[in-house]
Design a protein around this nucleic acid. Sequence first.
RNA 1: GGAAGGUUAGCUCAGCUGGGAGAGCAUUCGCUUGACGUGUGAAAGGUCGCAGGUUCGAGUCCUGUACCUUCCACCA
Length: 881
Amino acid sequence: MKKELAKTYDPKGLEDGLYRKWLDKGYFHAEVNPDKKPFTIVMPPPNITGQLHMGHALDNTLQDILIRWKRMEGYEALWQPGTDHAAIATEVKVTNSLKDKGIDKHEIGRDKFLEYCWDWRNEYGTRIMNQLHKMGSSADWDRERFTMDEGCSDAVQEVFMKLYEKGYIYKGSRIINWCPKCQTSLSDAEVEHVDQQGHFWHIHYPVVGEEGRFVEIATTRPETLIGDTAVAVNPDDDRYQDLVGKMLKLPLTDREIPVIADSYVDKEFGTGCVKITPAHDPNDFEVGKRHDLKEINIMNDDGTMNELCGKYAGLDRYEARKQMVEDLDQAGLLVKVVPYTHSVGTHDRCGTTVEPLIKKQWFVKMEEMAKPAIEAIQTGELTFVPERFNKIYLHWLENIHDWCISRQLWWGHRIPAYTCKSCGKVIVSRDMPDTCPDCGGSDFEQDPDTLDTWFSSALWPFSTLGWPKKTPEFDYFFPTDVLVTGYDIIFFWVVRMVFSSIEQTGRVPFHHVLIHGLVRDSQGRKMSKSLGNGIDPLEVIDKYGADALRLTLVTGNAPGNDMRFYWEQVEASRNFANKIWNASRFIMMNLPDGELAVPTSDQLMPADKWILSRVNTVAKEVTDNMVRYELGIAVQKIHDFLWDEFCDWYIELAKLRLHSDSRDAALWTLKTVLSEALKLLHPYMPFITEEIYCTLNPDQETIMTAAWPAYQEDRNFPEDEDLIRAYMELVRGVRNIRMEMNVPNKKKTELVLVGKDPADNAAFTHLKKTLGDMNRMVNASGIRIQSDKTGVGEDAVTVVTSRATVYIPLNELVDRDREILRLTEENKKMDKEIARSNGMLNNPKFVSKAPAAKVQEEKDKLAKYQAMKQQIEEQLERYKN
RNA sequence: GGAAGGUUAGCUCAGCUGGGAGAGCAUUCGCUUGACGUGUGAAAGGUCGCAGGUUCGAGUCCUGUACCUUCCACCA
C-alpha cells in the first residue's frame, strides 16, 4: 500500500513523533568505531539557571546542521551534550528562591543549601534539555554530562592538583575584584567597565611644617582617603620637585603620609598629584609595592567602612563619601568639585560597582600556559571562523593577567586545599590528609571556597570524554572538530579551553571555532529580560514548527554577524516548508504503487537530464559552502533550487508528460531529484525532510543516515542545461508578450518557432517530442518548428531569444505602431549590449591580459546579441513596409 | 587611548579567492492552469557611505575620510 502525506503540512502534529522515533532508534548515539572517521562537537553546556533562549536556539541549530551533515557523510558523528552548574548564577537564583520561601541561606547552612541546589539542577537541567529536544537537536543524550558530575569533578581535581604541583596554581594576597553584593571575588573577565557620571573632588592635603602650604589632589573616590599611604607626583614634574620626600597631613585623620615620585603619574592629568591607596586600587597597589607602602584596608566585605574609619565606620561606601566630602568642606580643604565621566568596573551579573580589595585568593599563573595557546593560532592548528576573531583572541592572551579562580560561594567545585588547624599549614591534596607533615596534627579543615565556574567548563571538551581516565572515547573522539559558540564568551571560555587542553592533553581541544553573533529583536536591540523583548523559541516552534525556526535562524546569517529576528521571516520559512510539502504530495499522488525502473540514458529526456544535472551541481556547491561554514549561503542555494527550479519549472514540465510515453522517466526523475534535494535540506529542516523522505521511499527507515549527495560526473549534462535554459527564455518571452498585449488567457494561438541554426532546430524538435503537451506552457494551440518563417503571417508578433525566434499570429490584437515601438526598444537594448561587448573586445589590453576564457565568453555574447539584433531588425523592416 | 565590524532596493540582510548588482518581506499589475493563494506570472525599485589609488576590469583589493555598533584598556 502506497503511503501518503497528510493533506496539510502540520509541524505540530509531526515533530514530536519523529523525534521520539529518532530517540528510540538510537540514531543520535555515537560509538567508538574504528571503521569510521570520527566527527565531534561538544555542546557549549547551557547554564541550569534558566530556559532556552534565541541564542541557544541559534547555537544549537548550527551545531545540529553540522553534525547531521557529517553523520550523513559517513562520519561517526558525536555531538556531546551536557549542562553547566553555573556557580554564581545558580547560587543567586537558589538563594533568591529560598528567600521567597522565607528561608535564609546562612541559617540553613552549607550542606542544606547544596541540597536545594541539586534539586534545582535536577529540575532545570532536565527542562532545558527537553527544550533542546524540541529544536530537533540530534545530540547523543546517552552521553549527557554535567560539570559537577563525578567524572567532571575528578577532572577538575586532577587539573587543580597538576597545576598546583607545577607551581601554576598559587594562593596569594593580591588586589582582586570584589563584589560587595555577591560577596565574592571575581576574575577580570567578569568585570564590565561602564561609563558613569561622577565627579572629581579636588582636595587640599596640608604640607607638614609649612603653614598654609597644600598639595592639591584630585580623586573620584574621596572615601578611600583614609586608606591613603602616600601622595605621588611624576619625578620629572618641575612643579613638585621640592615636595618629594616631604610629609603631608592626611585630612580627617591624624596620620602623616609622604610625597613620593613615581613615573606612573601623568603630569598632564588632573593636578599631577595622586593620592595612593594601595589597598583599594590596582594601580596604587603596584605603586605601593614599588615604594614599600603600607596597605590599609578600610572596608568590610559588604562595602561598608570598617573600624579603622572612626566616625565613618559602618557607613556604606557611598554614604561615607558624602559625609567625608562635607567634612572636608567644613575643614576648608575641599577646593572644588568637577563633574567627570569615567569608566567604572561593575560585576557583569549584578551590576554592582566592583571594589578592588586585597584578599588572599587562589590564582592560576597564566604566562606560560598562554604561550602555546597563542602558537596554536599562529601555526593554524586552531582557527576562528571568521578569521577576524583570531586577533581578538590573540590580543587577550598576549595581555593576560593571572586568573583568580577562588570564589566565596558554596555551589561549585570545592578547592582541594586543607589547612592544619594546629599549625596553619596548607596542604593541597585529593583527599583530606591524615597528619600534618609539619606539626603532626591531625585536625584539618578544607578551604571553604569553590572554583570559578569556568575552571570546570575549561575542561569540558575532554572531561566529557572521560579524561583523566584513559577511555576509548577520549582516544577516538578527541580532539573535537569544531566548537560553535557566540563571540561573547571567547575570553571566558574558548581561551580557557584552549590553554587547559594544551596543558593537560598536549593537544588543542578543537580545530575550528565557528563564531556566531547575537540574535537581536526586530529593532536591533539585544533581547533581554529587563526589556521584555525576548522571543521564546518554544513559542515560535509552537506556532510555526521547529523547522521554520531553524531555517529562519540560519537564512542570511553570516558567521560572526548579529542578526535580527522577524516573525515575517519565520512565516516565509514556514511557507517554504509548506511548498515542499505540497510539491512532495503532488509527486506521490502520481507515483505508481510499485517500484519505478531506473531509466536508461536514452529514456531520460532533456528536461530530466537538466534537473538531474542541476541537483548534482547544487549538491557540490552546497557541500563546498558547508565545508567553509557558509551555512546561510548553502541553505539559500537549496531553497532556490527546490522552489525556483524544481517546483516552478521541473514539476510544471513533468506535468506535461504524465500522459505520455516518457511518464515513467519523469516520475523516476521527480522522485530521485526530490530525494536528493531532501537530503541536502535535511540538516537544516530535519523533521519535514524525514517525514517526506520516508513516505516517498517506504523502504527507507530514515533520511538521517542516508548518504550525503556527492557530485557524480555521469549526472553532469551541460547541453541539456543549456537547452532548458533556452526553453525557459522562450516561454518567458511568449508569456510576456501575451501579457503586454493583454491577450486573454483563454485565447490560444499557434506559434512558429525558428531556431537560430539547424542544430538549435533539432534540439527544440527533440525537446518538443519529449515534453508532451508543450503548448500548455505558452498557451498555444500548436507549435510548429521550422527552418524559416514560411507561412508566418504579416501580423505575427516576434519574440527574439538567443537560440530561436518565435512568431505569434495575433492578427487583430496587433497594434503595428506599438509593435514598432516595442521592437525599437528591444533593438536599443541589443545595441547597448553590443556596444558593451565591443568596448571590451576592442580594448587590446583586455584581449591580451584577460584570461582567454573570459575573452571567448565575451565574443560569444557579442555574436549572440548581433544575431538577435538582426532578427529584430528584419521584423522591424517588415512592419515598416 | 587602542582594536574590530557595519554603511548594498522602502525594510532586514546575503554577495567565496575582482569579470555584466541578489534574496526575503513590503509595493504595483495579472492569474478560480486539477500539489500548494502559506500559491502563481510579471513589474517597479540601487551613483553598492564619500574621496583617491591598484587593475584591461573594483560592491569585492589598497589608502584616506565620515557616520553607526561592539570589544578591549590601571590615567587617579
